[in-house]
Design a binder for these strands. Structure first.
Lengths: 198, 198, 198, 198
DNA sequence: TATGAATGAGCATTCATTCAT
DNA sequence: GATGAATGAATGCTCATTCAT
């Protein structure tokens, strides 16, 4: 034990919590469960996180950081505005699919049900929207789209993606459709929806 | 008691539960809370509902009945297929806005987190989708739209609406936008999205 | 229904209760369970039996009546005292094996755990002992046995049988032994135990 | 607290449970009752015992350990096989009389009524039987008894003692007899029963 | 006679959190 | 920093019993 440095209990707690969040959701998730899974005592959790909410807020923040960083990189990496837009959409959906637990706490918790709602943290979410709005504007400037209100349009795009992700998450999409089929169709509609009519 | 005619305890339980569901969500909602609010004993709840799940399932069924009935009436009432489609969308969103508690248990619960998942009840949801698909087909037949796969398209429309509803529900739409502005814009995009390009 | 006379609800309740007693024991047995199984309402049970204890006491009485009647008949039917003694023993054990629910409430309930202990009813049990004591005396008079204290001896015989029955009931007899093997061996020992040494 | 050294809560819980078991039996015994009597909160019980069954199983094990240890000591201490046999019997009965709560959970619970039946724990009971069988065999080897099947005979002896203990436990022995009178008579019969007829 | 709604107390169990060590 | 005992309140649910109908 002395030679096996306790690497990073804090990290461990966060990762275990993420895993448990998928199966259990926030309410069913319990500190005892986390402790048992991490292999530490309940008290130890409280050494690192003031309470259950703080622990979840930490994960929410982490999620936003990951998402925003990914989108910022795409913004930089893809120069063609139309391709950038679809890359941003594809990324967003992929992020949700691969990190359902992050996605759930980032975008599916009703604020009125969170005891200690950290409004500031959610404001980070805005940045991800602004990146989409910027891509739309760029498309507009290049004459590819005619977007009167890019920020509103970005909300609509976001909503569309969020709807697809959510319905997949609650397993309500008809089994006849593959996940990819649905998500790709959605992305296609999103692009077309804004493309300049000739 | 003599002055407060005990109208219908069962109905009362259902209504109180609906109300509490908005504030608390399914997991936090407790039988004791319901009993306290209804003004009866815990045991009384169990006279009418075998257990907590059965109570919630009853509400889910009620919700689907309301929604499907509303959509069926619209289907009959509006003959113009394009207007019918937009009426169906508008209705769906209005239903969700006015009955957030119904909407949540109907469309937002992860099946794997429900102890006793009543798959059959959820199957009713399909009918609401089929009504939209039928409207799309009708539009196609009239040459107003060219919908290759009406059922897939109906899913996409549903997803779009569900996304708007969900984001409004978790209060993530920028305060600068009115609810109506967003929902109407979404409906407009939904129609346009499918309109035949000239 | 009108043509299907409600035969004898009371009898029905008693029989269902007996059946449930085997699986559940007195404590776990519930009025609701009985009502469900009988196919009547809980209230109906209370029409016939003042409360749960009274219902069980009725069964206890019934059990004693059956046992004593059986033993009295044997007493009359078998004239040879030695054969009578072994017949009485065999009967007793068979009664216990075939009516474990009667036997349990008749002989295994701790009086201090019965809310309303009907001491008088248990006094009936004595008669069954007296019949055994009488048989022992008869054997004594015929010179087959020399029983100094027939009543004490009857108690010991009873205890022996009760022990075999109880251990079989809690499934503690080694599986290598057949039930019959054990009970017959016990009866043999009981007879020998009292037989006059030559 | 400072004045009442919290010696050993775990031990305390076990002892209180034992006491309550006599009055209430396993089914009526409740965690709340134990907590109230121990003077701790309900949760505290669960700190030491995973659930009610585990708590009772712990007592069962404790009981078997006590009984077997006592019998093993007697086996070693008493060299004369006949005296050893009667000492083993006397010990067994004394154990049951002095620890009725242990005895009840060790030998009177129907396995089918125990939710989580710890079969392995009950297997310990066998050892106590084997010690008696060994004593019988020893008597046989010394020509004091002629025991064809010592293990079967041990079962019969056990049953006899169990019967006496049980009837005393349910207070069914006629008040005219002292407990000692009955138990000593039983032990005497047990020895005689197996003694070689001259 | 028969019903079944209603109750209040009770059940085993789990929880987030505190705090002395 | 890490522990884990301790708590009090809460959870879903069952119970024997009552009583107006």
């Amino acid at each position: 034990m002395a030679f096996l440095p306790q690497v990073d209990i804090c990290r461990n707690i966060l990762d275990v919590t993420r895993r448990l969040l998928i199966e259990q959701g926030t309410t069913r998730l319990s500190i005892r469960m986390i402790a048992r899974e991490v292999g530490c005592s309940v008290g130890t959790i409280y050494v690192y996180f003031e309470n259950k909410d703080v622990l979840i807020h930490a994960l929410i923040e982490e999620g936003f950081d990951k998402l925003v960083e990914m989108q910022e990189q795409t913004e930089k990496a893809v120069s063609d505005p139309l391709q950038r837009l679809s890359a941003l959409c594809r990324n967003y959906i992929r992020f949700a699919m691969q990190n359902p637990e992050y996605y759930e706490i980032m975008f599916m918790l009703k604020p009125e049900r969170m005891a200690r709602y950290p409004a500031e943290k959610y404001r980070k979410a805005r940045h991800s929207l602004e990146i989409i709005a910027a891509a739309l504007e760029q498309c507009g400037r290049r004459g590819l789209m005619s977007v009167a209100e890019p920020y509103l349009e970005a909300h609509l795009i976001w909503a569309f993606m969020h709807g697809v992700i959510s319905l997949i998450g609650v397993k309500r999409i008809d089994r006849r459709f593959e996940q990819d089929e649905i998500t790709e169709a959605a992305i296609q509609r999103i692009i077309e929806m804004n493309l300049k009519r000739k």
